[in-house]
Computed example of a mutant assay.
Amino acid sequence: MLAFLWAEDQNHLIGQAGHLPWHLPNDLQYFKKVTWNHTIIMGHKTFLSLPHGPLPRRRNIVLSHNTQLQLSNVEVVCSKELLLKLIAQDSQVFIIGGSQVFAQFLDEVEYLYVTKIAHQFVGDVYMPQIDYCHFKLVQKQKGIVNENNAWTHEFMIYQRL
């Protein structure tokens, strides 16, 4: 199963200067729960945005055009074709960003795990346009708004038809 996992604001914004434009602990906990013990794929910039390096208890794979790139405790793959071979036996694989990596796999993705935040933020990276007519909503859950989670948000899962 190949899935996208991301959070976005009302305008499909997903990043600002290499980081998330918001702090939403509910979404971070959801991300951890969903990806725990699974494979995550990201671009080099997304990897660099992780505050503590590779995420624990996950197979971390970086997709990069840089054939000389070497990272500790991370698998680096330089092409989509090699990546698809590498993950062929993995039961659950989550692409977590950035926008260029998402764009490369729009035709292959089977599930969309999206946290929709009901707010507009300032940023410079947007989610590629997804044609939702090819997906059906299979799960929707409201996030809890409190002093630590200031914005209304929902966790949604879509499955390709």
Rank of each mutant, 00 (worst) to 15 (best):
L86I: 06
R59Y: 13
E110R: 12
H52N: 10
L13T: 04
S64R: 03
P54E: 06
P51R: 10
L55H: 01
L83D: 02
L55N: 08
F121V: 06
V93S: 14
Y30G: 12
F105M: 06
A17Y: 15
T152V: 10
K33Y: 14
L28R: 01
N60Y: 15
P51A: 07
G143E: 10
R58D: 03
L2D: 05
L71Y: 08
I96V: 10
V122S: 10
I130T: 01
V77W: 07
Y113I: 05
I117W: 08
H119C: 00
H12G: 12
N149L: 08
A7C: 00
E154A: 15
E8A: 10
N11F: 08
Y113F: 10
F155A: 07
I41R: 03
F102C: 02
L84Y: 09
L13D: 11
M127F: 11
G97K: 05
V138F: 05
C78M: 04
L50W: 12
F4M: 01
H65R: 09
I87P: 03
T46I: 11
K85T: 09
A88N: 05
K45F: 07
V125C: 00
L55F: 06
Q129L: 02
K136Q: 07
I95F: 00
G97M: 01
R58L: 04
D9H: 01
N37F: 09
L50I: 13
I61V: 12
E108H: 08
M156L: 06
N11Q: 15
A103M: 00
E110Q: 06
E154W: 15
L28S: 06
Q159C: 14
Y132M: 14
C78T: 12
L28I: 15
Y126K: 10
L28P: 05
H44A: 05
V74T: 14
K136M: 11
E147A: 07
L106Q: 11
I117A: 04
K116C: 03
N149T: 11
T152M: 01
K116F: 04
V122N: 05
K136N: 15
Q129N: 03
L55P: 01
K80H: 14
P56D: 02
L82E: 14
A17H: 14
M42T: 08
F47K: 09
L2E: 00
N149D: 14
D9S: 11
N73G: 05
R58W: 05
V62Q: 04
W36A: 12
T67F: 04
F31H: 07
Q141K: 13
S49W: 10
G15K: 08
A103W: 03
N148S: 09
I95T: 00
Y113Q: 02
V109F: 00
F121E: 13
L50M: 13
E154P: 14
L55K: 08
W36M: 13
L161V: 06
I40G: 03
P56N: 10
N66V: 13
L5H: 02
N11D: 15
S91T: 10
Q16H: 13
A118L: 15
A17V: 12
L5D: 05
T115N: 11
E147N: 06
P21C: 15
F47T: 09
N148L: 13
V101C: 00
L50Q: 15
K80N: 05
D124C: 01
P21W: 04
Y111L: 02
V93Q: 12
M156T: 01
A103D: 12
S91P: 10
Q104C: 04
D131I: 13
M156E: 04
W151G: 06
A118K: 01
Q139I: 06
L13M: 13
L13E: 09
Q92A: 07
G15R: 01
